[in-house]
Simulated scan of single mutants.
Amino acid sequence: MERLPSWLRQHLAAIRAVAVLTVLLGLLYPLVTTGVAQALFHDKANGSIVQAGGKDAGSATIGQSFTDKDGNPVRKYFQSRPSAAGDGYDPTSTSATNLGPEDVIDVLPLPGIEGRQSLLTQVCARSKAVGELEGVSGARPFCTPDGAGAVLKVFPGHAVSVNQACPATPFVTAYQGLKVECAKPGEDYAAGRTVPVRGSAGTPAVPADAVTASGSGLDPHISVAYAELQAPRVAKERGLPLDQVKTLIGEHTTGRVLGFMGEPAVNVLELNLALDGR
């Protein structure tokens, strides 16, 4: 019997390898891993769904927003930390902002052109909003009173508060003898020296996790400090004693992983459901 040409034998071997690997890795392996997950970790494998009143209320491992149709916080609920995943807590778009501490200068909007807030201004604006919601100071170092990054571009004869678009009043009137001006959208200030201004704000009343997104954008927890900051508002809105709300916070606080990694955290969904149950 005549042997097949070598090039044909190589192609047939490749086809067999593809077929075998497809069955093993594309069918058998997913079936086995899915079966093991369902048998040993049934709840987690199905999304750790939390139910309330017989209906799915959310996931214990994926955060969600507690806002109205206009995106405003619902005052009777504890609020989650910000999310950079899609439009917020979208598991198909899990991500961080990928912005670092040197991202301090905004791109100011122009007619028909959308601007972009720097990471610093995002933090400042969130801190101001949380402070107003909770009745505390939202002031932070390197933030202006109106919730923008306190950053100057310094030139030989003047300085510009680059994150405060005209006709805003600059957060300082002068810097080292130079008059400080508001920023004109569309103007190129790249040649100036960048100077973030710390200001007089001390330790912020608003915790860091209230103004920054998690690395995944899906974190369902907030810090104990952020939960305690929100407790007076929630207690007032629900007509509950503050001590009762703080007790619920404690009941839904998880400790450090393995006793030493991370910080204690509060699951926002479970806490809000417990409040609804009361």
Rank of each mutant, 00 (worst) to 15 (best):
E2Q: 15
R3I: 09
P5F: 02
P5A: 13
P5G: 12
S6G: 08
L8P: 01
R9G: 02
H11D: 02
I15K: 03
V18M: 08
L21A: 13
T22Y: 05
L24A: 14
L27V: 15
L28V: 15
Y29S: 11
P30I: 10
T33C: 10
A37Y: 08
A37D: 15
D43F: 07
D43H: 14
D43W: 15
K44H: 14
A45E: 07
G47S: 08
I49N: 06
I49C: 07
Q51C: 09
A52V: 07
G53K: 05
A60E: 08
A60Q: 11
T61D: 14
G63R: 07
S65L: 14
D68H: 10
D68P: 11
K69C: 06
D70S: 15
G71F: 10
N72Y: 10
Y77G: 06
F78E: 08
F78H: 12
S80W: 06
S83E: 12
A84G: 05
A85F: 10
A85Y: 10
D87H: 15
D87I: 10
G88D: 11
G88H: 09
Y89C: 06
A96E: 10
N98Y: 12
N98Q: 14
G100F: 08
P101F: 06
P101I: 10
E102T: 13
D103K: 04
D103V: 03
I105C: 03
I105L: 10
L108T: 00
P109S: 07
L110S: 06
L110T: 05
L110I: 07
I113N: 09
G115S: 03
R116Y: 00
R116F: 05
L120N: 03
Q122C: 02
S127N: 04
V130L: 06
E132L: 11
E132Y: 04
E134K: 04
G135D: 09
A139H: 01
P145T: 01
D146N: 13
A150V: 03
V151D: 00
L152R: 02
L152T: 06
A159T: 04
S161K: 00
S161N: 03
V162R: 00
P167K: 03
A168M: 07
P170N: 02
F171I: 02
F171T: 00
V172E: 12
A174T: 15
Y175E: 02
Q176H: 12
G177Q: 12
V180M: 06
C182K: 00
A183V: 00
A190K: 14
A190W: 11
G192V: 04
R193I: 12
R193S: 09
T194N: 01
P196K: 02
R198L: 01
G199R: 00
T203M: 04
A205T: 13
P207I: 04
A210Q: 01
A213G: 05
S214R: 05
S214W: 07
S216P: 06
G217N: 08
L218W: 09
H221Q: 11
H221D: 15
A227P: 06
A231E: 09
P232W: 07
R233Y: 07
V234W: 13
A235R: 10
K236F: 08
R238N: 13
L240C: 11
P241F: 09
Q244P: 08
Q244R: 15
T247G: 14
T247V: 14
G250W: 07
T254Y: 09
R256V: 01
V257Y: 14
M261C: 03
G262Y: 05
P264C: 08
N267I: 02
G277R: 15
